[in-house]
């Protein structure tokens, strides 16, 4: 076991896959000298060369579109978009091309690519660098959507995403880049897509979350425990497909569901999970997510957007027992 950051663990996962499979390569802005925004590609160009860690022009449409073409032509590209906000310049290539080629062409094609587009608030980068649009992509048939929450998961899920024959939207949370955790370097296995992780066992309510919001939910669970409320915390890890079995089994035991995400609540993926659970189990459900405002810049404004542990705990207390 070694202690490493979320960014270092992703770098390790990518390096392992590039050593294992010569058709794996990455393209994006500033991967060489800079090594990616958080060092998640650092020094990989020295090991694999400029043809496999490719520094590109600022051409998001072509970063994504070239990845589609390269995937159709027998390689496994990783398109690095730097920010999910910038990836919006390439939604057409992702949604109209990557997600649909296999289907439109009657199964002749596979598009084994990873579109890496970090989400979330990192602090002080405001409205065009802080969004969490993960729900958009869960709505698109053909795509897999992954939101790793820990260093070990950012290695194991990235490996699974690279090996997947479907296009995977891989959304690391920028607020987690520097978070450290234990990673077993001797275990090169992937973490399967579509499987949630139960972060904390509980009896009285199930709290479902993902990415950086999981840690906040865990803080709330700690506070609630001191009041005798036992909250089970589930990190979905993959949003499409989401681990329905784990969530349903948990809520069937606890009898209540709260979904919490950093993304705007309106139209957020929490609504989908809450609706599915309510339809199937008929139990009380609730959602917490950001207000429908752009992410602001100034510290008190940005803090006002966030869903803090005290709000989560308060929402749980309000729910019918």
């Amino acid at each position: 076991m070694s202690e490493m950051t979320y960014a270092q663990a992703a770098r390790l996962g990518l390096q392992e896959e590039m050593r294992r499979d010569p058709t794996v390569w990455a393209l994006g802005e500033d991967l060489g000298y800079e090594g990616g925004m958080a060092g998640q590609y650092s020094d990989l160009q020295a090991e694999f060369g400029a043809d496999r860690i490719v520094d590109t022009p600022i051409s998001e449409s072509t970063i994504m579109g070239a990845a589609v073409g390269a995937a159709l032509a027998g390689t496994r590209p990783i398109a690095e978009l730097r920010f999910s906000d910038f990836a919006m310049c390439a939604v057409d290539e992702l949604v109209n091309q990557a997600a649909k080629a296999r289907y439109m062409f009657g199964g002749q094609a596979r598009v084994p690519m990873v579109a890496r587009m970090p989400i979330g608030i990192r602090g002080g980068i405001a409205a065009q660098h802080s969004q969490s649009p993960e729900a958009w992509y869960t709505h698109v048939p053909g795509l897999v959507v992954v939101t790793p929450g820990t260093p070990a998961e950012n290695r194991g899920l990235l490996k699974a995403a690279i090996r997947c024959d479907d296009p995977v939207v891989y959304m690391e949370h920028k607020g987690l880049w520097g978070v450290t955790g234990e990673v077993d370097e001797n275990d090169p296995s992937e973490i399967p897509l579509g499987v949630a992780r139960t972060v904390r066992d509980g009896r009285d309510i199930t709290i479902v979350s993902w990415a950086a919001q999981v840690g906040v939910a865990a803080e709330a669970a700690e506070a609630l425990a001191s009041e005798g409320i036992s909250a089970e915390i589930i990190d979905l890890r993959t949003l499409w497909p989401w681990d329905r079995d784990t969530v349903m089994a948990s809520v069937a035991r606890t009898g209540r569901l709260l979904v919490v995400h950093e993304a705007v609540r309106v139209g957020g993926f929490g609504g989908e999970i809450a609706a599915e659970v309510a339809e199937e189990l008929g139990v009380p459900v609730a959602r917490l997510g950001g207000e429908r405002i752009p992410i602001p810049f100034s510290i008190p404004l940005e803090e006002a957007y966030k869903i803090k542990a005290d709000r989560i705990a308060a929402r749980v207390r309000e729910m019918p027992a």
Binding site: L27, M64, G69, A70, P77, G106
Partner: peptide, 30 residues
């Protein structure tokens, strides 16, 4: 489309074949 003869697809979005082409060419080189 007919992948058996290298025909990687017609396309309903104008000019999207351009970016797909350069990516396919990068794969060819790699």
């Amino acid at each position: 489309a007919d992948f058996s003869v290298g025909m990687l697809g017609a396309n309903g979005v104008i000019a999207d074949g351009c970016t797909i082409s350069v990516g396919a060419a990068q794969a060819v080189k790699l």
